[in-house]
Computed example of a mutant assay.
Amino acid sequence: MEPAGKCAVVTGGNSGLGRATAQWLEAVGADVISLDLSGEAPEGVRFIACDVSDFAAVEAAVAAIEGPIHILANCAGIGGIGPIATAEGPGDMAAFRHVVEVNLLGAAHATAAVATRMIGNAPEGEDGERGVIINACSIASFEGQEGMGAYTASKAGLAGLTLVWARDLSRHGIRVNGIAPGFMATPMVAMLPDDFVAELLGDAEFPKRAGRPDEFAEVVDFVIHTPLLNGEVIRLDAATRPPARTKWSMD
């Protein structure tokens, strides 16, 4: 699909990977709408304040967008660290639920609302394509570390749903893919100590550095432009395979 002239919705489009994705889509000529809780959208991007964990709010935000929607990037997400249980008692289940509601249900809410609109699009090109949906997964989808239960549950669920949604929507000419980045230099991890970051990057094969949000956007570009790519989750992690735990989690 050629994104120029198309309407694209990016959840979490005001920061991090979502912001880079929104900026790239705007730069190539798409009409971009960011659904985010707060912050400032990139120049040229329309901002609709929306809590993606609230399906009614997502439906209202999507209803406010006029015309066909061809692209959805599910980038809204939050982090969370904590064990499922300790000798002192159960883990924080309210925090666990919140991470899953934002990262997993938020993507489901946006996909349900936007895909309904995409189904009504006129088919385009030789394949009759109507839309492209991209899920921001994570290497934690596959190798969650100690204490990352909520985050791993949300991202593993999103990775697993990518193929299911591709199968749900294929009859309508809509493709669904995921991108699973490793450690990326985004606001979500900006507060981490330098020693911790160095330890996390030590498991990267090459290059041994944090990924850049614009590199995520480049893979978004590839996914959108490649019709045969469907139901896949692409790792973007410098061949990183995280260990079970870090020295920081054991302290």
Rank of each mutant, 00 (worst) to 15 (best):
H172K: 05
P213S: 13
N135M: 05
L37K: 10
M184G: 05
F206P: 06
Q23H: 04
E146N: 07
I48S: 01
R212P: 08
T152K: 02
I133H: 01
P123H: 08
M191S: 14
M148C: 10
F216M: 08
S38Y: 14
A94K: 14
A94P: 00
G211Y: 00
M188K: 12
D127F: 07
G18E: 01
R245Y: 09
V189Y: 05
R245L: 10
H70T: 04
W165C: 04
S154M: 14
V164C: 14
T86W: 02
G12P: 12
V10C: 04
H98F: 07
N74I: 01
R175E: 01
N74L: 01
A159L: 12
L158V: 12
A87M: 13
D194Q: 14
E232D: 14
I119K: 08
F183R: 04
E126Q: 15
A56P: 10
P90S: 10
L201H: 11
G67F: 09
E66I: 09
A20Q: 02
G182W: 02
C75A: 13
A20F: 06
A20N: 06
E126G: 08
S34M: 08
A87N: 12
D168K: 11
H70W: 11
D54H: 10
P213D: 05
G79T: 09
G91Q: 07
F183A: 14
A94F: 08
V219W: 09
R175N: 07
V219C: 06
A113G: 07
A107V: 08
Y151V: 03
A27G: 15
I119F: 04
R209C: 14
E218L: 08
Q145H: 03
G211S: 09
L17E: 01
V189G: 03
